[in-house]
């Protein structure tokens, strides 16, 4: 049993949990950065920038996010290869020939001569960008809402003190908005955790990929033949995600209890009655 659980493929399976955590660790700040840019763009004085911000923040509202996860990596990949083909290849040859997208070998990304891990890393890189773009749009919604929730009087007082708009943003608006943004951002974190299995759709060898690979029925040609065990592998993956969200949920509950205290609602009333 312990032999079975420590085969090379199982080690890759365990490492793929690291891939998921890495994705979370990289995507969360990147998305926050994108979201911050988007929220600032919506408030910008320049009409063009404002329009861009509006389009960016509203694009996730009506369209399923998985469409972006499928679209952004291919579009980015083709964009990079097109740019490289203008530099490294004969520019007179069009990249789109009928139903094919062809660039010369020198413009391929990654180069066909590069080792396997480069292909893997490039796939993960495109996935991170897709996640950052989509979750950046979500985060821009949250942050924009938080910026609007900062009391107007605070900003007006700052102006009355003679601060420039830039100073008002940096010294008053941004420090104060976090309390309003915190619930939305915490929720976003939960959504992000639950979106990570989509890596599988993007072709990254993540936990879903390995759970399917290792769990599927093995014939006696393999060293450890077994019937279809995918159910048990997926139960393990499920437990991983439940653990991840359980931890976040605990933090949530504490905040929620705190906010209900002393409120004239059913929950607040129950709390008041429960107190000695």
């Amino acid at each position: 049993m312990s032999c079975y659980l420590t085969t090379g493929n199982h080690m890759l399976f365990y490492a793929s949990f690291g891939t998921v955590l890495l994705l979370l660790a990289v995507t969360a700040p990147a998305a926050l950065l994108f979201g911050f840019g988007g929220a600032l763009a919506v408030r910008s004085r320049l009409a063009g920038l404002r329009l861009f911000g509006r389009v960016y923040t509203s694009m996730v509202r009506g369209v399923p996010d998985i469409i972006f996860f499928l679209f952004v990596p291919i579009a980015m990949d083709q964009g990079f290869e097109w740019l490289r083909s203008r530099v490294y290849c004969d520019p007179s040859v069009p990249v789109r020939q009928g139903n094919e997208f062809i660039v010369c070998a020198a413009a391929k990304l990654p180069l066909s001569t590069s080792p396997e891990w480069v292909h893997q890393a490039y796939g993960l890189f495109l996935a991170v960008i897709a996640f950052a773009v989509v979750f950046g749009a979500f985060a821009a919604n949250v942050l924009h809402g938080a910026m609007r929730a900062v009391p107007q009087a605070q900003l007006e007082t700052a102006e009355a003190y003679g601060m420039t708009p830039r100073q008002v943003s940096r010294r008053i608006l941004i420090p104060q908005m976090w309390t309003y943004a915190l619930p939305g951002l915490a929720n976003l974190w939960m959504i992000l955790i639950k979106a990570t299995p989509l890596l599988f759709v993007l072709g990254v060898e993540d936990i879903v990929y390995w759970a399917r690979e290792l769990g599927s029925a093995k014939t006696s040609a393999y060293s450890y033949p077994h019937p279809d065990w995918r159910l048990y592998y997926f139960l393990g993956v499920l437990a991983f995600y439940l653990l991840m969200t359980w931890g976040s949920e605990r933090v949530f509950d504490r905040i929620r209890t705190r906010l209900s205290r002393g409120q004239a609602t059913a929950a607040g009333e129950a709390m008041r009655k429960a107190a000695p």
Binding site: K194, A195, F234, T245, E249
Partner: peptide, 22 residues
């Protein structure tokens, strides 16, 4: 509620399919 809110829908689909196949 915890089971279904705490896990990704994507995994739920996989798992449900595997269970239903059994």
């Amino acid at each position: 509620i915890f089971l279904f809110r705490g896990s990704p829908l994507f995994i739920q689909f996989f798992l449900a399919y595997e269970i239903l196949v059994q």
